Computed example of a mutant assay.
Amino acid sequence: MSERYEIDGRPVTAEAVLPLATGNFGHFTAMQVRGGAARGLDLHLGRLDSATRELFGGGLDGGRVREAIRHALAGGPADASVRVVVFRPAGAVDVSLLVAARAPAEAPREPQSLMSVAYQRPAAHLKHLGGFGQAYFGRLARAAGFDDALLTGPGGVVSEGAVANIGFLSGRTLVWPDAPALEGTGMGVLERRLADAGLRAERRTVRLADVGGFDAAVLVNSWGVWPVCRIDDTVLPSGAPGVAELIRLYAGAPWDVV
């Protein structure tokens, strides 16, 4: 599909996009849209509303977001990768919405290898603009022969992947690292599905020294769920039955009409 960009329902102009080109104060959500619907739409809208309150002092109506997405997709393919960026131009009272629609994306088909790096995102609970650190360390990881980076804090405490949450399987429990990280929408969608399969989730401290003791590890974002086969020199069983189960659970999650 051809890429489409709109700000507040109008085609992007150089003047309108200048605040984003010269600064990075804002936040966003990224979703996969199929047939005009997205998984966990309420999670995306809730994320945008709460972050707008924190950064700009007022909420963001979900109806406005949905209309902006529909407008950007009108007349084009019903399947797309959609990013909604919230920012406030200088002197403006209200925030503006940039909607970017690109070709749809899927979770990687091959198990991924991760290189741990000593980096945690600032204000990690926000999906904010300015992802230099993630891009920088992701490039270093790929140059070293890995697929991506794994962000860690002091003492080797695991936080999150560069572009996804990481979860570790221990029996019938999915362990999320209890460290500064974004609670992703894909993570929320998956958690809603666990109980139906007799699985549970918990949060606890996970250190690099601990990862070899888990049954498996997965990455999760709006693309889906995919396995981790290696973290640094520690090999993980990407073909463990629990991994396939988590992939199926996410794939079976309902889609919400935008």
Rank of each mutant, 00 (worst) to 15 (best):
V12F: 03
R83Y: 00
Y119C: 02
R34D: 08
A179K: 01
V65K: 07
G91M: 03
L140S: 08
R200W: 03
A144I: 01
R172A: 15
L60E: 10
P111E: 06
V211D: 05
G76M: 01
R10S: 10
M115Q: 13
A72Y: 03
T205V: 15
D49S: 05
V220N: 10
A141G: 08
V175Q: 05
G213K: 03
T22C: 03
S159I: 02
A74E: 15
G59I: 07
L140H: 13
V228C: 08
T173P: 01
D178N: 05
A68G: 09
A181G: 06
G224P: 14
R102T: 14
S2Q: 12
M31K: 01
G155P: 02
P104M: 13
G198H: 11
A101H: 01
D61S: 12
A37F: 03
A16Q: 05
R109T: 14
G171L: 10
F137N: 02
F28M: 13
R203M: 02
M187H: 12
P104C: 11
G40L: 07
L151A: 02
D232L: 11
P89E: 12
F168P: 03
A107G: 10
A143K: 12
G155M: 04
L45G: 06
A124V: 05
R47Q: 13
G62F: 06
G75C: 06
T13I: 02
V85C: 02
I69V: 15
V189R: 05
A197H: 12
E15L: 08
D233K: 05
L97N: 07
G242V: 08
G35F: 07
G252H: 11
A209N: 00
V218K: 09
G156W: 00
A251F: 04
P122F: 04
L48R: 03
I166H: 07
V158Q: 00
A72G: 06
T52G: 06
D256G: 01
A201T: 10
G167W: 11
Y136F: 15
F87T: 00
A240F: 11
P111L: 05
G131W: 12
L174P: 08
M1D: 07
A123G: 01
R200L: 11
P180H: 03
R172E: 15
A240L: 09
G26E: 04
S50G: 00
H71T: 14
P122Y: 04
L236A: 06
A197N: 11
F137L: 08
D256H: 15
F146I: 09
L41V: 08
V206Q: 03
D79I: 08
S113A: 15
S2I: 04
A253W: 10
V189Y: 07
V65T: 09
V228K: 07
A100G: 07
R248D: 15
F25M: 05
A30M: 10
L249P: 13
A80P: 09
L126R: 08
R192N: 07
A107M: 07
A118V: 00
R70E: 14
T205E: 15
